[in-house]
Design a protein around this nucleic acid. Structure first.
Length: 588
RNA sequence: GGCCCCGUAGCUCAGCAGGAUAGAGCAACGGAUUCCUAAUCCGUAGGUCGCGCGUUCGAAUCGCGCCGGGGUCACCA
C-alpha cells in the first residue's frame, strides 16, 4: 500500500488524466495553510490552466468533481486562485498506520530498478592523519551508502586511499634523509627487505609536512621528491617495498579510526592499485587520439563548445613522465568498469575539487570509459569555526579528526553527567553511551545541513539534548524504548491502530512521510531531509506522548492502539538513525 | 579577471521541480507537571529572504546586472 500522500497523488493524477492532462500535475504536497482541516494540497490546476489557457478555478472545479466519488478522498475544496485542498478519507489513517507498524521497512519502498552504485568516499591520505576535512566525506558517504543500500540498490563503497603521487616521493626522500642506511635506499639491493615497517603512524604524520614545507621554498628538494615519485612509479623495488610499509601502517591506523566512527568500506583500495592499468590506458588514449601532446606532456582536452568556464586540459602524463592525480582517477574508473561495472559512481569529495572532477569525468566520457552522467561529484562545503573561517586548532594547525571525535565524546560525557543520565548503568556502559551520544552529535550536525553549505562547528550546541540535535533524537528513541519495556512488564501488547486524536493523526501523517524524505535524500544525494524527517517525527511523537496517555489510558483498546503507534514510531526512528550512521542505546 | 559555492529571524540553519500569511532549532518572554524519563509540551515576540531590474496571474525559488564572504583557475593530491 502506497503512502497516503501517494494515494492522494494517484487520485489527483487520475483526475488530471480524465481531462487529458499530464498525471504529474496531480502531485500532492503537505499543506501549511490549514493542516488540521486539510493536511494536503495540490497546486497542479494553475499551471495546467495556464498551459491550456483556461480558467484555473474552473479547471480545479472539474478536478474536484472527479475526486468526489473516490474512496481515498475525505474532502476536497478549491481555494484561492485554484489550489485544491485535500483531506484523506478517514479509514486511510488506521490502514496506513497498521501497514507501517507491520512493515520491517516502516513504510519505505524499494527502488523499482536497482542499480549498481559505486560510492567513493573517505579518501584519507597515507601520508597524513585524517583531519576535519575528512569528517564530511566520511559521514556523508557512509550515510549515502546506507541510504542507497536500504533503497535496494547494490552498493560498493571504496575508501580510495591517497597512496600515490608526489606525496609518496616526499615520504621516501624525507625518510632517506632521516635514516639513509635503510636498505630501501640502496639501489643495489632489490630483495629481502625487512618485514617490520621502518616507521609508525606518528613518523608518517611528521615526515610529510616536513618534506612538503621544505619543497615549498626549495626547488631542488621538490625535484628530489619528484624524481623519487617517478622512480617509485617506474617500479624501483626498494621504493615499492617502502610504499607497502607506508600503506600497511596507515591502513591499520585508519581501520581503527573508521571503526571508532562506525564507518564501513567494502573496498580498501587506493590510487596505487590503479597503477598497473596506467600504461595501457595511456597507450590507448594516445592511439585513439583521446590524448595529445602539449609542451612535452600528454593531455586530454576537455573544453567544450559553449562552455561558460575555460576548463584546462587534463594532464595525463607530465613532462617528466609521471602519472598525475587525474591519470590515476581515470585508471581507477577503468578498473571499476572492468571489475565492478557500476551504473553510477558517486565521488563524495569537497567542492574545492569541482574542476578536477569535471575534467576527469569529461575525459572519461570522451574516452568512452563511462556513460554521460554516470559519474557524479557529490560535493560538500567546509567545516568552519565560530569565526566563520575554516576550523583550526588554537595554534592555527589543522584539526585532527581523532581529536575532534574524542572531544565530542568527552563533551557528551559531561552532558550526561550534568543531566544525571546513564548514571546507574556501570562505568563501561556509561562510556559506551557517551560515545554514541558524542558521535550522534557530530554526525547529525554535519548531515542536517544541505551538503554544499559551509557550517559552523559548535560542540556545545551539537551535544545539547535540547533542540534539533543528534542527542535529542537518541534520547527520544530511548524514551520510547523505555516505554516499550514498561509496557512489556505491565503485560500490555500493541494492538490495532485507531488514530482519533489530532496528535495521533499528526503522528500517522509524520510516519507516512518517511518514504518521501528518503526519495528526496536519494535524489539530492543529501541526507539532510532524513535528519529533518527524524526530527519532525520525534516532535510529533512528543506531542502525541504528552497529549495521549498510553499505559495510563483507561480503555484497553486505546492503550493497545497507542502502544502500537509508539512501536511503529520507534522502528521508523531507529531506521532513520541507522541511515544517518547513528545508534541509540537501550537506556540513558 | 574568468568560473564555482554561499548570502533567509539576534545566532545556527531548512525551504529553492515558482504557489496561499516564508519555517525549524537555539536565545528572549509568558504558561503547563498528583500522570508512562520536564532533556518535554502549549503560547508570545522576532523577517526590505544581500541589492536592483526582468519573466509570470504569482518569485526566497527562474533570468540578467551589481554588492559581500569563501573556493578555484594545466604539470600537488
Amino acid at each position: 500500500m502506497p503512502s497516503i500522500a501517494d494515494q492522494l497523488s494517484a487520485a489527483l493524477g487520475d483526475a488530471f488524466a480524465s481531462l487529458e492532462l499530464p498525471r504529474e500535475l496531480g502531485r500532492v504536497t503537505p499543506s501549511k495553510q490549514n493542516p488540521e482541516v486539510f493536511p494536503f494540497q495540490c497546486n497542479g490546476a494553475m499551471p495546467a490552466a495556464k498551459q491550456a489557457k483556461t480558467n484555473p478555478r474552473e479547471l480545479a472545479g472539474k478536478l474536484v468533481e472527479f475526486l468526489h466519488g473516490l474512496p481515498q478522498i475525505g474532502a476536497a475544496e478549491i481555494a484561492g486562485p485554484g489550489f485544491i485542498n485535500l483531506r484523506p478519507a478517514e479509514h486511510l489513517y488506521s490502514e496506513r498506520a497498521a501497514e507501517i507498524a507491520a512493515d520491517e521497512r516502516a513504510g519505505a519502498d524499494v527502488v523499482e530498478t536497482p542499480r549498481k552504485v559505486m560510492i567513493d568516499f573517505g579518501g584519507p591520505n597515507v601520508a597524513k592523519p585524517m583531519h576535519v576535512g575528512h569528517l564530511r566525506s566520511s559521514v556523508l558517504g557512509d550515510s549515502l551508502q546506507r541510504l542507497f543500500r536500504f533503497r535496494g540498490d547494490e552498493v560498493v563503497s571504496d575508501i580510495h586511499l591517497g597512496d600515490w603521487g608526489l606525496q609518496m616521493g616526499h615520504l621516501i626522500t624525507e625518510l632517506e634523509d632521516e635514516q639513509p642506511d635503510l636498505p630501501y635506499f640502496d639501489a643495489a639491493i632489490t630483495d629481502g627487505y625487512p618485514s617490520e615497517p621502518p616507521v609508525d603512524i606518528e613518523d608518517l604524520a611528521r615526515l610529510y609536512p616536513q618534506a612538503s614545507a621544505k619543497a615549498k621554498s626549495d626547488e631542488a628538494r621538490l625535484e628530489r621528491s619528484r624524481a623519487a615519485t617517478a622512480e617509485l612509479q617506474a617500479g624501483r623495488p626498494g621504493y615499492r617495498a617502502l610504499l607497502k610499509h607506508f600503506i600497511d601502517v596507515s591502513v591499520a591506523a585508519l581501520k581503527k579510526d573508521f571503526g571508532a566512527l562506525g564507518v564501513h568500506f567494502d573496498l580498501w583500495k587506493g590510487e596505487s592499485d590503479a597503477d598497473p592499468l596506467i600504461p595501457g590506458l595511456v597507450e590507448d588514449f594516445k592511439a585513439r587520439g583521446v590524448a595529445e601532446e602539449s609542451d612535452g606532456a600528454w593531455v586530454v582536452r576537455v573544453a567544450r563548445e559553449g562552455d561558460k568556464k575555460e576548463l584546462a586540459p587534463l594532464i595525463l602524463v607530465s613532462k617528466t613522465g609521471a602519472a598525475l592525480y587525474g591519470t590515476t582517477d581515470l585508471a581507477t574508473i577503468l578498473d571499476r568498469k572492468q571489475t565492478i561495472g557500476p551504473d553510477l559512481t558517486l565521488y563524495v569529495v569537497d567542492l574545492a575539487q569541482s574542476d578536477h572532477f569535471e575534467q576527469v569525468f569529461r575525459a572519461a566520457e570522451k574516452a568512452g570509459l563511462a556513460a554521460e552522467g554516470a559519474l557524479e561529484h557529490v560535493k560538500f562545503g567546509t567545516v568552519n569555526g565560530k569565526d566563520g573561517k575554516r576550523l583550526r586548532t588554537r595554534d592555527g594547525g589543522t584539526f585532527r579528526l581523532a581529536d575532534l571525535i574524542s572531544s565530542a565524546i568527552q563533551r557528551a560525557d559531561e552532558r550526561l553527567k550534568e543531566a544525571g543520565l546513564a548514571a546507574d548503568v556501570g562505568a563501561e556502559e556509561h562510556d559506551r553511551v557517551a560515545r554514541m551520544v558524542g558521535l550522534a552529535a557530530i554526525k547529525f550536525a554535519d548531515l542536517q545541513n544541505y551538503r554544499t553549505t559551509n557550517y559552523v562547528f559548535d560542540l556545545d550546541r551539537f551535544t545539547s539534548f535540547e533542540g534539533k540535535t543528534g542527542p535529542y533524537l537518541l534520547y527520544a528513541a530511548v524514551r520510547v524504548k523505555s516505554l516499550m519495556r514498561r509496557a512489556e512488564e505491565a503485560g500490555v501488547k500493541p494492538g490495532s491502530i485507531q488514530a482519533d486524536a489530532a496528535e495521533e493523526r499528526d503522528l500517522v501523517l509524520s510516519l507516512d512521510a518517511f518514504g518521501a524524505a528518503l526519495d528526496q535524500a536519494c535524489e539530492n544525494r543529501a541526507p539532510n531531509t532524513i535528519c529533518d524527517h527524524a526530527f519532525t517525527l520525534a516532535q510529533a511523537f512528543s506531542k502525541f506522548y504528552s497529549a495521549c496517555p498510553i499505559l495510563s489510558a483507561e480503555d484497553d483498546v486505546v492503550k493497545a492502539s497507542r502502544l502500537a503507534l509508539a512501536q511503529a514510531t520507534l522502528k521508523q526512528l531507529e531506521l532513520c538513525l541507522h541511515l544517518l550512521g547513528m545508534e541509540a542505546p537501550e537506556r540513558m
